[in-house]
Computed example of a mutant assay.
Amino acid sequence: MDELLEGLLNKIKSGAYPPGSQLPSGRVLADEYDTSQSTISRAVARLRAQGVLVGRPGRGVFVAEPPRR
C-alpha cells in the first residue's frame, strides 16, 4: 500500500490531481494501480485522516484545498 500512497501523493503534488479535484472512482484507481478496491479504500481513508483528501457524501472524494493563510 506504500507504493499506492506514494503514487497518489505524487499525483497530488505534481498537479495531476489539483486541489478541489475529484479523485477517480475506486474501481478506476484499482485498475490503474493493479490492486483491490479494498486496498484503495484503505489508502483513501489514510489520506483523508491526514487531511490530504476530503469526502463529500454522495459526490465522492476530493483533493483538499490548501489551508488559507
Rank of each mutant, 00 (worst) to 15 (best):
A16G: 01
L53D: 10
D34A: 08
L29V: 05
E3V: 05
V54R: 15
A45C: 02
L47E: 05
V28Y: 02
S14F: 10
S21P: 01
L4F: 10
E6I: 11
T35R: 10
R69V: 12
A45M: 04
K13E: 13
N10H: 07
A64G: 11
L4Q: 05
L47D: 03
P19L: 06
P24Q: 09
V63W: 11
P57T: 14
I40G: 00
S36Q: 09
Q37Y: 01
N10P: 00
Q50S: 08
L29H: 04
L5D: 05
V44G: 00
L5T: 10
P24A: 11
G58A: 07
T39L: 12
Q22P: 02
L47Q: 02
P18C: 08
S41Q: 12
V61E: 04
V52E: 10
G58Q: 11
V61N: 11
T39I: 04
R68F: 11
S38T: 14
L53K: 04
S21W: 15
L8V: 13
V52R: 14
Q50W: 01
A64K: 13
Y33C: 05
R69D: 13
S36R: 08
M1N: 12
P18S: 08
V52P: 01
L5P: 00
T39R: 15
P57Y: 15
V52Y: 05
V28N: 06
T35Q: 03
L47P: 01
A64S: 15
P24G: 08
R69Q: 11
Y33R: 04
A43K: 01
L47Y: 03
P18F: 05
V44C: 01
E32F: 09
Y33I: 02
R59G: 03
L8P: 01
A43G: 09
M1L: 13
D34N: 14
Q22N: 09
L53T: 04
K11A: 10
V63E: 05
S41Y: 10
R68V: 15
S14T: 12
L9T: 07
R69W: 10
D2W: 05
K11N: 04
G55W: 02
T39Y: 03
V28Q: 12
R46Y: 13
L29K: 02
R59N: 08
R27Q: 09
A45I: 00
A30R: 01
K11Y: 03
I12E: 03
V44Q: 03
P57L: 15
R59T: 10
T39W: 03
A16D: 11
G26S: 09
I40E: 02
I40A: 01
